[in-house]
């Protein structure tokens, strides 16, 4: 059940990402996805292994479900958010991004209900802080990657 849920969520994210208008090139998005995965895994390793604020269920199904989220879903959501932040819309893009950020709260509850994660020293504000940090990092990386592209165009 837990693995099926996480795979379904991931597939929904892939579907939405493939539908929305993209402001970045495919190569830029691949770089951003890889960098976001590295960042996500590092932060989660600190929170989970070093600080022990969250524990992950060690059963095969639950831990695989967690890996699907960490390795695929969360970095792809960040790629999606970075694309949305590049839209020319004034307020709507921020409302959508805040909406995506708030969706991580019920997600956290569901993960705990499905016994994938166990919050030891963790609350909902930490979830918001962590994902806000991911979004800020992803936006900064997007800025860096797109600057890199404009520099490259100038060199050509």
């Amino acid at each position: 059940m837990s693995l099926a849920f996480c795979v379904l969520m991931t597939w929904l994210v892939i579907t939405i990402l493939s539908i929305i208008p993209k402001k970045m090139t495919e190569l830029d998005m691949i770089i951003l996805y890889a960098v976001n995965t590295i960042f996500d895994l590092s932060i989660f390793a600190i929170v989970h292994i070093n600080l022990n604020w969250i524990s992950v269920n060690t059963d095969v199904e639950q831990s695989l479900a967690d890996l699907v989220l960490r390795l695929i879903m969360i970095p792809l959501v960040m790629v999606m958010v970075s694309n949305i932040l590049l839209y020319s819309w004034k307020w709507l893009k921020w409302i959508i991004v805040i909406g995506i950020l708030l969706l991580f709260i019920p997600m956290q509850f569901i993960l705990q209900k499905l016994d994938i994660l166990k919050a030891i020293h963790w609350n909902i504000y930490y979830t918001l802080c962590m994902f806000s940090l991911y979004i800020i990092f992803s936006s900064l990386m997007t800025l860096f990657i797109t600057r890199f592209r404009s520099k490259e165009v100038k060199l050509d």
Partner: peptide
């Protein structure tokens, strides 16, 4: 190109993270 230098570097770092964290 600089962009490809970056992406080819990240390939290795990403693969390391991916397998070590799984």
């Amino acid at each position: 190109s600089p962009k490809h230098n970056l992406v080819y570097m990240i390939c290795g770092i990403y693969s390391g993270f991916f397998f070590d964290h799984s």
